[in-house]
């Protein structure tokens, strides 16, 4: 099933490429390039979900984490006049948001959905209250011209010249997949997400692992927020993340809580958006822009409807672990 999904996605990329290539090779490569750009924040945000839910903590605060991190990353970058420092501030902010979620969900055993909502409301409130116009960062993060790969025909312009967060993000996703399935950290994390009591009786600290993973996941969400503000567009607006954090949850489910699956799903979402953009630029179709902004949500509903009932989430997700039970 997983294999088939990835086949469909590859096929979608080929179809799109061929369609545009018949008219203009440059447009074809740029559509795919843009698809990666759209996909990356979604993929990273989905990793936040994967890391949290695999250890049994539901995180619907990804949206807020990204929004708040984008905010701090942008204004720190603007005030310090250093985009790279801004990025680190963004990542740190994300980690703190993760820590807050862990505190509420793991230590206080709050309802995890409500904990996530709190994070979203907190982020939306603070970022719009302290938002100021007329700030700007010195420059967006520098794109990297990949050696060798950059010179390849067709693939070169698609894969090369992305920003540092993009490359780091993709490496991180691959590393996360490896870690989740091939390391003792991954085995323990998955066990904690499936059956925390088993992990506990085997001497694995459920609390510590959940704290650790949720906090690291927060940092990844911070990176996704920084990407939006510092690498993709170089600005910050109120409500800047526009539901990407929620879309990411759908992507995580579509990818079956597997980092690679979620990456593939994110690429599919990114592709859809890139194609729609291009069709609008070409004026092939005339769609009111409102409908374009609806697209991720419609796709999210479709994807969730299709995968509903067929996927199996980690068994212990959303349930606080109670050690003492008579």
């Amino acid at each position: 099933m997983k294999l088939r999904t990835s086949h469909y996605i590859t096929l979608a990329f080929l179809v799109v490429f061929t369609y545009f290539y018949r008219k203009d090779g440059l447009v074809a490569t740029s559509v795919l390039y843009t698809a990666i750009q759209f996909a990356l924040p979604l993929a990273l945000a989905a990793m936040v979900g994967v890391m949290c839910e695999r250890t049994g903590v539901v995180n619907i605060g990804i949206e807020g984490t990204m929004l708040f991190s984008a905010f701090t990353a942008f204004f720190a970058g603007a005030i310090m006049k250093d985009t790279v420092q801004g990025m680190f501030v963004g990542v740190f902010t994300g980690a703190m948001m993760g820590l807050l979620l862990a505190l509420m969900a793991v230590s206080w055993k709050m309802n995890q959905i409500i904990a996530g909502v709190i994070i979203n409301i907190l982020a939306a409130g603070i970022t719009s209250f302290y938002y100021r116009q007329n700030y700007s960062i010195p420059a967006t993060l520098h794109p990297i011209d990949l050696p060798v790969v950059g010179a390849w025909p067709i693939l070169g312009p698609v894969l090369s010249f992305h920003g540092p967060i993009t490359y780091f993000g993709i490496l991180f996703i691959l590393a996360l997949w490896f870690a989740l399935y091939k390391t003792s950290w991954g085995l323990r994390s998955r066990a904690v997400g499936e059956q925390p009591a088993s992990a506990d009786t085997a001497g694995v600290s459920v609390t510590r692992l959940r704290y650790m993973n949720v906090t690291i996941a927060g940092a990844v969400g911070g990176l996704a927020g920084s990407y939006l503000a510092l690498e993709a567009v170089g600005i910050f607006e109120r409500g800047f993340t526009a539901g990407k954090g929620f879309t990411a949850l759908a992507i995580m489910i579509f990818g079956r809580w597997n980092p690679l699956g979620a990456l593939a799903a994110a690429l599919f979402f990114g592709l859809t958006q890139a194609v729609t953009n291009q069709l609008m630029i070409d004026e092939v179709v005339e769609i009111p822009p409102q409908f374009i902004t609806m697209l991720p949500y419609i796709l999210t509903i479709l994807v969730l409807a299709i995968s509903a009932g067929k996927v199996r989430p980690p068994a212990a997700e959303g349930i606080a672990y109670e050690k003492e039970k008579s």
Partner: peptide, 30 residues
């Protein structure tokens, strides 16, 4: 301890369940 309600992770293999918590590994890699 062998618990009344088995403390096993249902979706994992026998090996994975047996090594959980004390895994043979090298630099964290199983």
């Amino acid at each position: 301890m062998v618990h009344q309600h088995f403390q096993l992770v249902p979706v994992m293999s026998v090996t994975e369940n047996l090594i959980l918590g004390d895994e043979p590994k090298r630099f964290g890699v199983l």
